[in-house]
Nucleic acid binder design. Structure first.
Length: 613
DNA sequence: TTAGGGTTAG
């Protein structure tokens, strides 16, 4: 018998316990068993738990539900799900705790489907009376649906919650908010939140996170402000993390800095996840140097910290910094994950480091034992496509078997590259593949049409546009916005009528356009028509052009380091680059342009990452 | 004896 086992037996056979066991019926001996199992559940040693388990069997009292539940719990804490399942299977009387415990065990060990199966069994159980789920069961099941993003089952469980009388339970409601959020049903999450009689910091955080994770960062920050304004509690690291993340998604440097201040004041700056969110936020707000400062203060950076930093640097055009960080993490024996590789491949792609990028792509399997997935193939196709190695990119894309959503990304990437390099043949094939995937169809039509237009094939370009109109395929016009101090200025393609400084802006735009004409860049504008707007009218060419320049206009009034965000549908053309270059000449300072994928750092009129030229 | 919220992706 091991020392642990002896120790457990000695404890079990202490005189007072022996006395009560010998002088009482088994019924009265239960409290001691409860005490015993409670004691063991706090232990983290498998030997102790198994010896306790064996003592229960020897005692002949192992049919006790309460005690067995405690043992199941002990095994679950030791991540021994099979032991817990075996005990559960052998139980003669399972109660709601037994079921809920095992469900929670499966959820925490990444098997949420098993929890749902158990619930199904629980409802079908014929042994004794039917066990009814309680608030613990529901919150665990909702958590399982959240992980699986299973809206249908989640809604069914929500219905059961309503009829079972647990609709006012704080934990159940927070789980529901989280589940709806993870299933991208923001309105349903908000309904649960609004119907809650009592809320706590967790329920507020769940709602803030739902907004933040569903591209509604402004609502996340609004709710965060409301929580603080009404002094409903002290934000904890979970809530702060989501608020920082919301700032990152909006590119709100000012708010991000304020929240960073709150993080420090409340002593959450040492929290790893908060630090990671801050690294990401500063990078997305165009302050990679701040990201690096936060990153370098993390005592033991994890793979997520490194990845945040690698991705941030990559988007900023600092490919060599990304690669240096990647090497650093390898040297520190921190294993890169799939997202790290997406980041580092992205870095190579946008910094023209093709050989290094291909080497990394090949090393994924060879050195790191990781199979590249569609995202890695897409990055590599992008890498080859950007430098004009379209045929190689095409061959690589053809070699991948992916699902429809990934197909659209993969072939959409090749389509963009084909347009950039005027390869109508590959663009046609790529657009067919995108259309076949039934995702991003409108974008594919527009890009193909632009490819034709750039190649001078106006007939096909026009035919494609007509087809779009005929079949009702509509591409949402792009929009851009710029934040100057506390205000956000939003521009829609071809429309600056709502802009408050319209007159002033138009005057400047005329001046800029005049200077652009002098430099002979207006002729290229025709390509831009098909890239960004739906109508081919000449007037709109001018106004679209103006819109781009309007974006740049903000630079004149902004401090150094302003970030311009350009949304997905607005692609940079040479004219716009020239406009930015001109403005840079005028303002004589550095500035940063951010588009959906990356930052472009301009200095003295040149994009330092070389992406534009 | 059992349950809820946060970070990195083209």
């Amino acid at each position: 018998m091991s020392r642990h086992c002896m120790s457990a037996c000695n404890h079990f056979m202490k005189p007072n316990l022996v006395k009560s066991l010998s002088s009482s019926s088994p019924r009265f001996s239960l409290p001691h068993l409860h005490q015993f199992s409670f004691h063991t559940s706090s232990k983290k040693d498998l030997t102790t738990v198994t010896s306790t388990h064996s003592n229960f069997i020897k005692s002949g009292l192992s049919n006790d539900t309460f005690t067995t539940n405690n043992l199941i719990n002990s095994y679950l804490k030791l991540l021994r799900i099979s032991h817990a399942q075996k005990l559960f299977d052998e139980m003669t009387h399972r109660n709601v705790v037994s079921w809920s415990l095992l469900m929670a065990g499966y959820v925490s060990q990444g098997q949420p489907n098993m929890a749902l199966c158990l619930f199904h069994q629980m409802q079908m159980q014929t042994q004794g009376t039917l066990v009814m789920p309680n608030e613990f069961t529901f919150s665990t099941l909702i958590n399982a649906c959240s992980i699986l993003a299973s809206l249908e089952i989640g809604r069914r469980i929500h219905a059961l919650v309503e009829v079972s009388g647990y609709r006012s339970d704080l934990v159940v409601c927070s789980s529901l908010i989280d589940m709806y959020g993870k299933c991208n049903c923001v309105d349903e999450a908000r309904m649960v939140f609004d119907f809650m009689c009592v809320r706590n910091v967790v329920s507020w955080t769940s709602m803030i996170t739902t907004y933040s994770q569903n591209a509604q960062g402004h609502l996340a920050l609004e709710l965060f402000r409301e929580f603080n304004h009404f002094r409903l509690g002290k934000p904890n690291h979970f809530m702060l993390c989501s608020a920082v993340s919301a700032c990152a998604s909006l590119g709100r440097l000012g708010s991000g800095k304020i929240i960073h201040g709150v993080v420090i004041r409340l002593g959450h700056d040492a929290n790893d996840v908060v630090a990671s969110a801050l690294v990401d936020m500063y990078a997305k707000c165009g302050c990679v140097s701040y990201s690096e400062k936060v990153f370098r203060r993390i005592p033991n950076p994890s793979v997520v910290h490194y990845t945040s930093m690698i991705v941030g640097a990559a988007k900023y055009g600092l490919g060599t910094l990304s690669l240096r960080l990647f090497q650093e993490m390898i040297d520190r024996r921190i294993k890169p994950n799939d997202i790290t590789f997406v980041g580092v491949l992205h870095a190579c792609s946008h910094s023209g480091l093709i050989d290094k990028g291909l080497e990394l792509f090949n090393s994924m399997n060879e050195k790191h034992g990781m199979m590249p997935d569609p995202r890695h193939y897409t990055c590599t196709v992008d890498m080859l496509g950007r430098v004009g190695r379209i045929d190689e990119a095409y061959q690589l894309a053809k070699s991948v078997q992916v699902g429809s959503e990934d197909d659209a990304l993969l072939w959409g990437t090749l389509l963009s590259a084909s347009r950039l390099h005027g390869r109508v043949d590959i663009a046609l094939e790529a657009s067919n593949q995108v259309i076949k995937s039934n995702q991003q169809v409108a974008a594919a039509y527009v890009t193909l049409s632009n490819t034709y237009a750039l190649a001078g094939d106006w007939e096909n370009a026009h035919n494609l546009r007509s087809k779009m109109k005929r079949t009702g395929v509509f591409k949402e016009p792009g929009s851009s916005w710029i934040e100057i101090k506390e205000s956000t200025y939003l521009f829609h393609a071809g429309d600056i009528s709502k802009c408050s400084q319209k007159r002033e802006m138009l005057n400047l735009l005329r001046e800029l356009e005049g200077r652009m004409k002098e430099r002979g860049h207006v002729g290229v504008t025709t390509g831009l028509v098909f890239v960004d707007i739906e109508e081919e009218a000449r007037e709109e060419i001018v106004s679209l052009h103006s819109e781009k320049l309007a974006l740049a206009f903000g630079l004149l009034n902004t401090p150094k380091g302003i970030t311009i965000r350009i949304m997905k549908n607005l692609r940079m053309c040479r004219d716009c680059h020239e406009a930015f270059k001109l403005i840079s000449d005028i303002v004589q300072r550095e500035f940063i342009v951010r588009d959906v994928n990356r930052f472009h750092h301009f200095k003295n009129g040149l994009c330092t990452c070389g992406d534009f030229w």
